[in-house]
């Protein structure tokens, strides 16, 4: 376990390695990772949430929404990045494009399933009370769909955080993946330290989104109750990167 204590030392030194004066600090690289990731997540949400929610509200396009998610599951992120680099070359814009391409499908699919799956009786009751379509969406379907919508957002966000670091393998610099891609300078202890930081960043991102989800979920619409209505496959499972 000696290498792990050295890794913790590396983190405590803020990513500096004796004899390597020119290295960026760990804080700098972590912030770089967070920045790239959140730009990607933000743009993906702006594109995907309205599409998924609207399709679900209209109960249309189930084939599209579900199959986009299924095909996307089969896309290895390293392969997508590699093909993207081959066609577009390397740069922040291209990495963001790959992140968005990979993050949009789970958000669309889950938002669709969430809104489409809201109990029809509840929607009918709301309509009977005189709510307009927009009011039904805002005050009934979205609150009840929060757990599943967030399942998609959390999946997409984790995907983006992981892929941001994998992008370093394709030559994109400015994230924690740089350290893993540069063992010559950082040695095993630095690589392990960076891996610990990436893992912590992913767990914290998920925790943060889980807290937001909890704050937004109305009482009585927890995922467990929702899951009971799901098909045999259970709640939609996240893709892994």
């Amino acid at each position: 376990m000696n290498s792990f204590s050295q890794a913790l030392d590396f983190i405590a030194r803020n990513g500096q390695v004796p004899g390597e004066p020119q290295l960026p600090t760990l804080v700098h690289l972590t912030l770089g990772t967070v920045r790239i990731a959140w730009i990607g997540i933000g743009i993906a949400l702006v594109i995907a949430l309205p599409i998924g929610v609207w399709l679900g509200h209209m109960h249309r396009g189930s084939f599209l929404a579900i199959n986009v998610g299924n095909i996307w599951r089969a896309l290895p992120s390293l392969a997508v990045l590699a093909i993207g680099v081959a066609f577009l070359g390397l740069g922040l814009g291209n990495v963001e494009l790959a992140l968005i391409v990979l993050a949009v499908p789970p958000v669309i699919t889950n938002a669709y399933v969430a809104v489409d799956g809201v109990d029809r009786d509840v929607v009918d009751a709301a309509r009977g009370m005189g709510l307009s379509g927009w009011q039904i969406l805002r005050r009934v379907e979205l609150p009840l769909g929060v757990p599943l919508i967030f399942a998609g957002i959390r999946t997409g966000a984790l995907f983006v955080v992981s892929t941001t670091t994998i992008a370093a393998l394709t030559g994109y610099s400015g994230s924690l993946g740089d350290i893993i891609n540069n063992e010559a300078s950082y040695h095993l202890s630095g690589v392990l330290g960076a891996a610990i930081c990436i893992a912590a960043l992913a767990l914290l991102t998920d925790l943060l989104l889980a807290l937001i989800q909890r704050a937004l979920t109305p009482r009585g619409a927890t995922l467990e109750k929702h899951a009971a209505r799901q098909e045999a496959i259970g709640p939609p499972l996240a893709e892994k990167v």
Partner: peptide
């Protein structure tokens, strides 16, 4: 385990 990014987990196990 599932939440840890693959790149990080592979490297952690190397240690």
């Amino acid at each position: 385990l599932y939440t840890i990014p693959s790149l990080a987990l592979f490297e952690l196990l190397v240690g």
